[in-house]
Amino acid sequence: MWFYAARRIVLTIPIALGVTIICFALVYIAPGDPIASLLPPNATASDIALLKHSYGLDRPIPIQYLIWLGHALTGNLGRSIQNSQPVAGEVLRALSNTLLIAILAVLVAFSIALVLGMLAAYRVGSWVDRLATGISVLGISVPSFWLGVVLVILFAVKLHWLPATGMGTSGSESFSLFEWKQAKFAILPVVTMALTPLSIIMRTTRSSLAEVLGQDFVQTLRAKGLGEIAIMRHAIWNAMPQILAMLGLQLGYLLGGSILIETIFTWPGTGYLLNKAILTRDIPLLQGAILILAMAFVAINLVVDLLQTVVDPRIKRA
């Protein structure tokens, strides 16, 4: 396994390089100028030139890329054009905020999906199965930005039970999961975020488990007189690699793909940061954020792959 892990880590290097090249290309292909949002409407071409020079944006793009790459290798992702803060700090702070709700959302989704998926797989075609399938279809079909707004109207505006927006009473620095006054800020974003992974993980659990339950070894276990709970324990362990793979993918998507949810709840995470970076063409921030998110995605998949080998030793990787 260690050899396999080392090989996977080495393989992330070309992936990272590919990501950096795509980042650069995408940012420069998109219309709009990173300097434009900093300038007044009547700025002249010479004003623009001076500012571009001060940010090094007047150099050829390959040179800009190589300089940036050199700095990135030392952990320096440059400074944000908008607020001059170091990009690495900005992205890592946002990533920690997103990780918090993404992990909670995936845990909530995983717990509920596992129970519903097991019930549905155990009684395929029953009302429980149809109910679980209905929930799953609803969860995949309902847009998260719509659900977020509806939850805000219900729980914040009408009932005044939960806050509508933000992260903590005085911003993210005051946030704590262990203090109800602060922790309640995370509830609506987590619930909104959990719905899609819940549906997908539940469908995966149901189909994988139903397939396993139909295999010969389950008949053998029954013939040997094992109880249904023990049989289910064996079956779920066999279905777990697929479920874990899906869980990892969903966590990866949530890390970078929660722009709408974080914007609705003004949650200062990576989605919110990326949205701002895109709108203001903050190139260093955009490049740094995409790189770190891509690396986080790769790391999560690596961890999930390794977990799969632990759960099911038949999966020979090395």
């Binding site: 707004v149 805000v152 914040a156 505006v157 806050p163 509508a164 927006t165 933000g166 914007t263 003004t266």
Partner: peptide
């Protein structure tokens, strides 16, 4: 001063007393 670009979020924040 809190940046809140979404109009619906601003309205909800006012209605919920935030």
């Amino acid at each position: 001063l809190i940046p809140m670009p979404e109009a619906a979020t601003r309205a909800a924040a006012l209605l919920s007393g935030q």
